[in-house]
């Protein structure tokens, strides 16, 4: 199996590794770098649990080879909280509105919504539903997640005003 050198940043930290070409980005983050916050739910790109941001855009880490992230900046769920460990507004809203139960889909939800809220400052509930339409959650029935996303948008708008 051929090996490749990969250099990338994850949550602002530079990493250089040599890895097999077949290693996907999710496994690289989880098992090579030990960042186990990114979860793998289906390995065929449907469930969205493995969603991370690559150069700011949401990506299914199970559908991307780690070598394709060479030279890129990756953000995972571990990179969301503030440097002092405080929850960001979206994370805090998830806790406030019971947007998670087992927590397995949560990292993917948070990353998908982080991108969405950056580009949609005053979203409607219907827009939030569309935005997370590619992220499966078996526990919550989505209501708490949608309430959390709307509350986070309001909070972000208020903080920025």
């Amino acid at each position: 199996m051929s090996e490749h050198a990969v250099t990338l940043t994850v949550n602002g930290v530079a990493h250089a590794r040599t890895i097999e070409g077949r290693v996907n980005l999710a496994d690289f983050l989880r098992h090579t770098l030990g960042l186990t916050g990114t979860h793998v739910g289906c390995e065929h790109g449907v469930c969205g649990a493995c969603t991370v941001l690559v150069d700011g855009r949401s990506v299914r880490a199970c559908l991307m080879f780690a070598v394709q992230a060479d030279g890129r900046a990756v953000t995972t769920v571990e990179g969301l909280a503030a440097a002092d460990g405080g929850l960001d507004p979206l994370q805090a809203a998830f806790r406030e509105h019971h947007g998670l139960q087992c927590g397995f889909c949560t990292p993917g939800m948070l990353m998908t919504l982080t991108e969405f809220l950056r580009e949609n400052k005053t979203p409607s509930a219907a827009q939030v539903r569309e935005a997370i339409g590619g992220n499966l959650c078996r526990c919550t029935g989505y209501a708490g997640i949608i309430a959390a996303a709307l509350a986070a948008a309001r909070r972000i708008a208020a903080d920025g005003a």
Binding site: H31, F94, R95
Partner: peptide, 21 residues
């Protein structure tokens, strides 16, 4: 009452079986 479980899960600090190395 807000859940005590959430603080770790929201930060990506959950410990599911596949996270164990």
């Amino acid at each position: 009452v807000r859940r005590s479980e959430d603080a770790d899960l929201l930060r990506g600090r959950g410990r599911y079986v596949d996270d164990i190395h």
